[in-house]
Amino acid sequence: MLALYRHMVLTRALEDRLESLFKQGHLVGGLYRCLGQEATAVGSSYALEDGDWLAPSIRDVGALYVRGLPPIAMLRQYAAREASPCGGKDNTTHFTIPELGLLGPISPLGTQLCVLNGMALTFKQRGEPRVCMTYQGEGASRTGASHEGFVMAAALDLPIVILLEHNRWSFGTRSDRAAAVEDWSHTAEAYGLPVRSVDGNDVLEVYEAAREAVDRARTGGGPGVIVAETYRMLGHAQHDPQKYVAPEELEEWRTRDPIRRFERVLVDEGWLSESGCEEIRTSVDAELAEAVDQVLAEPHPEPQTARTRVFADPEEDPEVPWTRVSPIGYADLNLTESRGSQAGLHGGGR
């Protein structure tokens, strides 16, 4: 219970830090927030075990912490530091860390389900009781890749759990413009998969549903889908002031805030006192303050590392001098000598 709480608090506290860093100009790219969706990511991923694999979307940062990712890694990603999991070559949650069972998504949505299917297929081929879990917003589930991913998971009966996060918005488009259903569980039923709808802002309900689906997948019961009803409380990214959202709707969902709700449960059931909650928040903040200072002191990657790691074989990374003026410029190519050396070899021609 306390771990669930701490991971949700951490998710939000780190985002607050990232927002400040973004405003101070320390983040080089966009900032994608998951305010209001912390319970979905944390509750579901908590149902996994070591050896399982998880593929988040960009808004499922809490799930990464549950899998053991140190929060400093997210700071490094957004700040494009050399020591970031992507070495500065990609942003957000787009990293793959086999030791933690984390598969990074890519920006074309729905694709990570197709790839995670391959991991689940391997578990099945090897007879290993391991499970995969992935997330899609309802917007992402409209892509062809998502559809094909659902089809393949169902056809090959793979051990995979798919969280469909109905957060109401894909960028600036309402979910009722993206499908002719109100109940999004119908979209998963079409694949013949078992579906359970949950209150995505209730971390315990999410956990219980995920536990059920994970256990079923682990024991050969095939894929399962969970539709988590939640709300994206901020714009698509930090640059989006969310003007297309009715203020009263936001206000209504603010009363269902997943962290405040869970705090009430913790206090009412005697797990923590109000001051106990405060202590956890303070310790998380202190941890993050230290991490921020450390990351800001770290270097960005060396420019020429942009060339590396295209292929496994370093020789396959092209190093052609005249593709860049700097640092090896045209001046370094001895044109006169090159022309002169050919004259004797090749006098004829036009």
Binding site: C114, V115, N117, G118, A145, E148, M152
Partner: peptide, 20 residues
């Protein structure tokens, strides 16, 4: 597999990540 080329290639990538 189903007629799902994206899912075919995606599954191949995932399996390769697992050492296949």
């Amino acid at each position: 597999t189903p007629i799902s080329e994206a899912a075919i290639v995606g599954a191949a990538i995932g399996a390769a990540h697992m050492g296949m």
